[in-house]
Structures are given as C-alpha cells and as structure tokens.
Simulated assay, not measured.
Amino acid sequence: MPPLALFMITLGITLGTLMVTSANHWLTAWLGLELNMISIIPMIAKQKHLRSTESATKYLLTQAAASALLLFSSTLNAWQTGSWDITQLNETSSLLMIPALAMKMGAAPVHLWLPEVLQGSTLTTALLITTWQKIAPITLLYMMSNHAQSNITLLIGLLSILIGGWGGINQTQLRKMMAYSSIAHLGWTITAISIMPNIALLNIIIYMTMSTPFFLLLTTTSSKTLQTMTTQWSHSPTTAMVLTLLLLSMAGLPPLTGFTPKLLILDNLVAHKLTIMATTMALLSLLSLVFYLRTTYLLTSTAPPTTTQTTLMWRLKPYHNQFTASLTPIALFNITILPTLMM
C-alpha cells in the first residue's frame, strides 16, 4: 500500500474514533462512525483476491445497516424529546440503539459478519477490527448506560457468551477462533454495561491489551491455523511461552489478568441479586475455555522431550527476536496485574 494512502487511512480511522469519543451530539457520533467505516474498508480489501473483496462487501453492508438503524433511532429520539444529546435517550430509542451498536461491534445475535470478515482479512486488519473498531461503539454504550435497558443488555450479553464459546470450539482457523473469542468477551462487557459501566470498560480494555500482543505474535510467525501452532516451540520457545500465557489469560484462569474483570463482574451481579445470571455466565465461559486449552495444548505438546508432530511450514517467515522481546512487557502485564491488585 502506498505510504500516502496508508497515512490517509490511519488518519481517517483515528479521527473517526476521536470524533465519537468526544461527541455529545448523535449526528457527530454518526459521522465519526461513518468515517471509521470508510477508512478501514480499503485495508480489508487490499489483498488481491476474491475472499478479501467478499469480506469488505460484508463489512460495508452490515456496518451501513447498523449506521442506518443508529441514525433512525437518534432521529426518533430527537423527534420525541427535542434533544440530540447522547445521554438523553427515551425507552423506544434505547431499544433500537442497543442492537445497532451490537451490530457495529459484532455481538450476538447480529454477529455473523465478524468471523467471515476476519477470515478474509490480514492478521493486522483483524487486530484493528477486534480492538480499535470496538472503541467507538463501546464509548457510545458507556455514555448511554444510564438509559440502557438492562433486560436487553443482559440478553445480548448472555447470547454473545454462549455463541462465542460454542462457535469457537469448532474452528481450526485462528482468525475465526479469535473472532468468536471477541464475541464472548463482548458478551461480558455488554452484560455489565448497564449495571456497572466502569467494570465493563475495564473488561474491554484488558481484552484489548491481551489480544494485541497475541495478534502481533501471530503476524510475526504467519500462523493462521491450529496446525501451525504445533511448530511454534521448535521455531521460537519464547513465542510459544508468551502465546500460552496470553491464551490462558484470555480464558480467565486465575491468577492471570483475564480473571480480574470476570471476577468483578460476577461479584457485582451477585450483589445486584442476579445470582442465576452470574452462574449461567460462569458455566457458559467453560465453552470458551475448551478451545483456549486446546490451543495451549498444541503449543506446549511439542516441548522437549516430545518430538514435533508437524513439519515446519514453509510459509513461516523468519523474524527478529527483538520484536518478540519488545512484546514481552505487554504480555507480562497480562500475567501480573491480578497478583498486583491482590497486594
């Protein structure tokens, strides 16, 4: 991609997100979301094959539909209340706005576009879609959390945790597996957004700090399937160890960082007398644990003295150990924050 085009795309994505996060007016937020969407489509379609074109088309259609629903909801709210303020939503507009933002993020039950778009994108673009592109919709949900219908958010969150765990079990492609992982983590965030918005924000921030080094390490080693994960230890033991710890942290196993927001969310749900909901969420999270542990088994099953089960893939590109070393502090953050909080 030409440097000027890359600069314009990066500028558009950054400005679009900043417009949404600093907006008080629904039209300003809508313009920021549109700028964000238009800027990332060339990154999805930059590969010269049909799969990337199909992914860009699916992303455009779903995001345009979500933007239209968002604009209709905000217009209806302005007609009924006389205000375009994001924090002033009536019940009808809130019922329409939450599914629109859920479609923007890729939460269930309007999630079908996310695994397909990620599968047709590069690992770098998949990282942007699962992290940076979530910031604007999450910010809008956070700003309207006082007016969000708790029944709707709890239902969408529970469905996202279920579908994210169930869909990821059957995947052998790492990008699709991470797409369903993103859906499951969004479920935890949306569940908490109307009851404890600060903890929901903490949950999505911690997920972004976990998935960023994971995707960067996959990009470095060109790993795209579970089969290539079996060669990681012979290729780079450091990378295999860091990936293992990141996966276990995303699974939410104590004492790693990923357990922190889950513990806080479950504790607050029980405090709000939603014990059955908390129990159901904890049980459904075991579905996600299955494919996380399967991937970590593939990473560690080839450690010495066990012999490698798969020949080294020719498409694995050599990389500098300095890059892996630079990601180590980020990975350590995902390992040590929970013991630090306990202290």
Rank of each mutant, 00 (worst) to 15 (best):
I205P: 04
L332W: 15
P115F: 05
Q171H: 07
E116H: 15
G82K: 02
F214V: 10
P237F: 04
L247E: 08
T17G: 06
T122A: 12
T125D: 06
T295A: 15
S52W: 09
L159N: 08
S301M: 12
T306V: 14
A192H: 07
M19T: 10
S39W: 06
S22V: 00
P99W: 02
K317D: 09
L298D: 07
K273E: 13
F333M: 12
M208P: 02
T340E: 11
G12Y: 11
P237L: 07
K58R: 10
A78S: 14
T57K: 10
L71F: 10
L118C: 08
L70A: 08
L127I: 05
L15T: 13
R294V: 10
L269V: 06
M144G: 12
D267L: 11
L338H: 00
L186E: 06
I41H: 08
S288L: 01
T219F: 02
L253E: 00
S182H: 02
I206W: 03
M342Y: 14
F291Q: 06
A325L: 15
I135Q: 03
L266D: 00
M241S: 13
M277I: 14
P213C: 05
Q227L: 15
P42F: 09
M144V: 10
T122G: 13
T302V: 00
L312W: 15
F215T: 06
A64I: 09
F214K: 05
W166K: 05
T57G: 03
T279W: 02
F7S: 14
L140H: 03
S288M: 13
H49N: 14
G187M: 00
S211W: 09
H320T: 13
T212R: 04
L289K: 06
S67R: 09
L283F: 12
T340D: 09
G252R: 04
L218Q: 11
T340Q: 12
S145R: 01
P305Q: 10
L140P: 05
A78Y: 12
T81K: 11
I206C: 07
M1T: 15
D267C: 08
I129W: 02
H320F: 14
S181V: 00
A271L: 11
I190W: 03
L316P: 10
T280A: 12
I98A: 09
L201W: 13
A108C: 01
M250I: 11
L101Q: 04
S249L: 01
L286G: 00
S326K: 12
H272S: 14
A64E: 04
N268A: 02
A78T: 03
G168S: 06
P137D: 03
S67T: 05
T275Q: 10
A29H: 01
I195C: 03
M19V: 11
N146E: 14
Q173N: 11
A102R: 02
N90S: 01
N24P: 01
M37C: 08
M313P: 15
L141K: 02
P339E: 08
Q63W: 10
